[in-house]
Design a protein around this nucleic acid. Structure first.
Lengths: 363, 363
DNA sequence: TTGTAAGCGTTATCAG
DNA sequence: CTGATAACGCTTACAA
């Protein structure tokens, strides 16, 4: 293939990236040496290394990703598929995830599934096709095909934002059900008996489902009838939260406390409450979930469940890197449960006395 | 290389993706035909196409990205580098950008530069190395090396969120200066004379700089002295906005209206104002910029500059696709300026009478 | 320590 | 319409 070299030199291809070959030639060594010099510098003599690096800088050489991926069978690229980028729910966690990956020289590809398992499956396929070495996924609900895909391609993956010890699949997150139950219990402790929930659609969203279940758990513990719990499902958005709140408020059994599946919904509920002339928490209590920035700037501040965003992101990254490096062999790494706590602000208060008198009790 | 084929068949490599070769064999055609069948179906006969597709499905074939990139010299991947993912400033625009790209079969890679030109340069390098066909960038401030890189590699790119007709570089966005000036004029029209600004750090952020300049423009038009305008620079975050507000409020020349460089800062300012027992807008007016969701849920709602997020994202995507397809040749596409408007809510009101009396006028 | 050369899985050119 | 076959740019045994 001298023919090739010739072409390269003859035509002064001004506008094309230099290749390993170019660098090798310029440095007077073989392409293999240049490659080594870049990937395993310690295996090259001081002297030649200097020469090579000089040539690299001179030519402004940057390796061709496709070629490298093809030859090395790894891309140093991880993927993350989150349900949404529209609000900040996953932003902090993702940021931490990325920071940690960067430390390891790994690039992150992000895409969002819009809470659709079908779309997620497509994204998984796309990321794998793109050579993602490992994947970060949110929650456990996805199509069987998605899992099959991951399995058959042997792609390391961890699931964040949820935890399920009963599944042989490494997840890292917190117990949504327990967390919400904890919050619901606090609400019940404050005397509330007429609760209501505004949740994200539970179908295809185990976090939402678990959170609802947590409320029910608490109800049962207090000998209340879960069947009486109004639950409105609506996609995460401020205005949806507002509308749901209004529906709840205008229903026959007006709740004294509204638990929202996340802070965005709660912020919407809060603002509608104000518009309706209600005082929070004097007239009605509202709680959130996630503890994102929005929770502290609404007024009153949102009492909410604090989620360990950054920790999840960081640990997920470390775990995934280890898995990719084969440190766990074939067996999935053990799952890690992080604690979720309650952040107290002012949107939750004791039930108003007149409320408990005016309205019929649950049982 | 029958040797190769042998190996493939002998060792029952359970866990490896099938290749074009495998499909070709299974369908009884050449790899070239399979490739065509996938990339230009119309150039293959109905019959063979059916056979090939069957084999593809049977084997669960998915093309190898690296190989494809290497051979085709394009990845169908675009990159976007935004200053931050922490808050929702760029979320809507990016979402629209992605949706439009998806229509064109293009995958989006996103990374964030944390408002650092140095980091951005690194990201640009990384995205190019990864084979990004084109790039979306925010604002005009970046290192000369970044531009050099883009130029030398001939990577199509457009700049969003800013517009600068004086530069031979295609940008798509709105006039930050004009928009902020418009808002400032409204504020002045309402009788305010003691303005103050809370801005993001102007260094390396042309949007922030232009917005500040816009306020100054308005001041000048009203014969006020720009030198008297207090400007506090602080990174975008709720708490920073709050702190900056307090500093401003406790200074000798208490402003009657505080213009914030974005909604996040404004939300922080608003909440601190409340904590300090101030009524907005009766005691003090506060405005934002961006019109993200947060602007409508704080109370009072934020009067702010509405930015055409989705339009920018969509147009940027279309433009970039066209550029990648060579529809503009060597010349950069013309820039596109979109209008920014004011969204009126309640955080801005006429200056209180006593205020203008109590405090000394500007001049 | 360094060089040689065989792939890696596609695409694209060019005959047939 | 289809099939050989030469790139594409890099990594990695294997030799030297």
């Amino acid at each position: 293939m001298p023919e090739e070299k010739l072409r390269r030199q003859q035509s002064g291809r001004a506008n094309a990236s230099p290749t390993l070959e170019d660098v090798a030639q310029r440095a007077g060594v073989s392409t293999a040496t240049v490659s080594r010099c870049l990937n395993a510098p310690e295996r090259v003599s001081e002297a030649t290394r200097k020469q090579v690096l000089e040539a690299v800088n001179l030519l402004g050489y940057a390796p061709n990703f496709g070629a490298r991926a093809l030859a090395a069978k790894r891309t140093d690229t991880f993927g993350a598929i989150i349900p949404t980028m529209e609000n900040a729910i996953f932003a902090r966690g993702l940021q931490a995830f990325q920071e940690e990956l960067e430390q390891n020289g790994i690039t992150l590809l992000v895409s969002s599934s819009s809470y659709s398992p079908q779309l997620e499956e497509k994204q998984i396929r796309a990321l794998i096709a793109r050579g993602a070495d490992a994947l970060l996924l949110i929650g456990h609900d996805r199509t069987p095909q998605s899992y099959a895909l991951l399995e058959s391609k042997g792609i390391p993956h961890v699931i964040a934002w949820s935890i399920d010890h009963s599944i042989p699949r490494t997840s890292i997150g917190f117990d949504n059900r327990k967390a919400m139950r904890m919050l619901a219990e606090e609400i019940l402790k404050l005397g509330h008996r007429e609760l209501a929930v505004i949740s994200a659609p539970q179908d295809g969203n185990d976090r939402a489902r678990e959170r609802c279940q947590g409320v029910i758990d608490a109800l049962i513990q207090y000998d209340l009838n879960p069947a009486d719990l109004p639950i409105i499902e609506t996609p995460y958005s401020i205005s949806n939260g507002a509308d749901a709140f209004q529906t709840l408020f205008q229903s026959r059994n007006r709740p004294t406390a509204v638990l929202c599946g996340n802070d965005v919904l709660a912020a919407g509920a809060l603002s509608r409450a104000r518009e309706l002339g209600l005082r929070v928490p004097e007239d009605i209590s509202i709680t959130g979930f996630d503890d994102i920035e929005i929770a502290q700037i609404v007024s009153p501040g949102l009492t909410t469940v604090h989620v360990p965003h950054r920790k999840m992101g960081m640990h997920a990254a470390r775990l995934l890197v280890a898995m990719r490096n084969g440190e766990y062999g074939e067996t999935p790494a053990e799952s890690l449960e992080l604690p979720a706590t309650i952040t107290w602000r002012d949107s939750l208060g004791p039930v108003a006395l007149r409320e408990t008198k005016d309205l019929p009790q649950d049982r």
